[in-house]
Design a protein around this nucleic acid. Sequence first.
DNA 1: CAGTGGTCTAGACCACACT
DNA 2: GTGTGGTCTAGACCACTGC
Lengths: 271, 271
Amino acid sequence: MPTSPVTPPSNPATALPAEARAEGEFAGQTAPAFSPLYQQIKTLILRSLQAGEWKPGDAIPSEFDLAARYRVSQGTVRKAIDELATDNLLVRRQGKGTFVATHAEQHIQYRFLRLLPDTGDLDSQGPAERHIIDCRRQRASAEVARQLGARTGDPVLQVRRVLSFDALPAILEEIWLPGGPFKGLTVETLSDDKGPMYALFETQFGVRMVRAVEKIKAVSADAEAAALLNVAEGQPLLSVERIAYTYNDVPMELRRGLYRTDCRHYRNELN
Amino acid sequence: MPTSPVTPPSNPATALPAEARAEGEFAGQTAPAFSPLYQQIKTLILRSLQAGEWKPGDAIPSEFDLAARYRVSQGTVRKAIDELATDNLLVRRQGKGTFVATHAEQHIQYRFLRLLPDTGDLDSQGPAERHIIDCRRQRASAEVARQLGARTGDPVLQVRRVLSFDALPAILEEIWLPGGPFKGLTVETLSDDKGPMYALFETQFGVRMVRAVEKIKAVSADAEAAALLNVAEGQPLLSVERIAYTYNDVPMELRRGLYRTDCRHYRNELN
DNA sequence: CAGTGGTCTAGACCACACT
DNA sequence: GTGTGGTCTAGACCACTGC
């Protein structure tokens, strides 16, 4: 950073180098509208994350370095990073640095799974046993395509599996993944892997799930679900339909789970 | 603020006036541990909220005034308020001030209700029609007492009601409230009131619900629920058990809802 | 216009982790 | 010790609201 540190206070928004000028873009219809500097920095960092400049688990440059790179003050970078950290895209560790969030090496086994034992104090249930039922290449139905932001007939992978806790089946899941990003995913890949599926997606396919939206209903077990979950046909089950998104709100997974809730419950905190 | 503005940088934690010294307290067992200034300020503001110094809907003093009052810089107050705002305890309005969050005059009809129509674009469903079934004074069962943080046999109020959308019953709720804080609550109070129940709690009883935790299960409709919700007995329903808390994590309401999810779903966002 | 929150800066110092 | 994030300050200026 040869020039700036002592530059007098010019308009900082226009003082940004080409890389940092997220303001101009193209401004299709709506007026450019004012966007604070730290928001622009946030966008730039996000772009680097998407582009894979820093991979999950990596440390990103220090706040000071980033401030120099974007020609802003450390405080401004800090505010940008703060927001990315509360979105769980980055993780700060005092004294060490700021890291790209990752599903691997993340102690929480299942990032988005909210099913807890009714009695079990805390997460005292052992690790889930996973059993893949099948993994098929197929074409997206209109419904699946719509939810994945794809077109009807696009290639998709369908995975079905059962999760058990203490040898008791608890969850039957049906998962759809877009064929492109997940080319090469097979039953073997899934079966051989230990650890969360989302960690596998990161390391093998470079796809990091960032957030998800779920639609929950109560349904009756049909014959197949009843058999696989070892309950009577017609038993009430929780149906959890999840769409998971990568960076930039791109949907990358559709998942429909049927949860047994006779000894477990879906826990949700409301603020 | 006669003295400080130019005071040299002494230890700010000990430079606070008596009111602001949230550090010392009594430090029962654990070492006092370091807590940043803005956390202490946050605690002090919280205390004023609990004490009712500023009521829901009121504006609190400006950041500048609070900074003077606590003898810290505006930035420190700002950070404290920031956190309280993201916790939904305060609401910032640029150019106007910072206000105590309230359920009344809050455009969102139901703060904690996550049930949405499957198709209805957005919140296009009309306001809910409410029908109180009964409201009884009784003694807390062991189970209810435990969840409300009370003792078995303590006086509680039990309310049952049905919520309907477009004349179709959708939710059957059973609500338990501690007798003390809600003394004087009657069927009439509830029936006469229009607007969210939590708004009534605020204005009539000075109880503001701040956060809640829900346990969700799938269950079968029993005869009574089936009749009230106009479904066949045995139909799957969503059971939503909610504990709502006021300031300081004090539980103030236990609520068990049975939701019809044939045309609606419980929506949850995961980050 | 004055008052409020919102952004940005620059510099000081603290707490923590590594080496 | 060096380098990182974490806290705190003080002052400048911008954007919004309402008189």
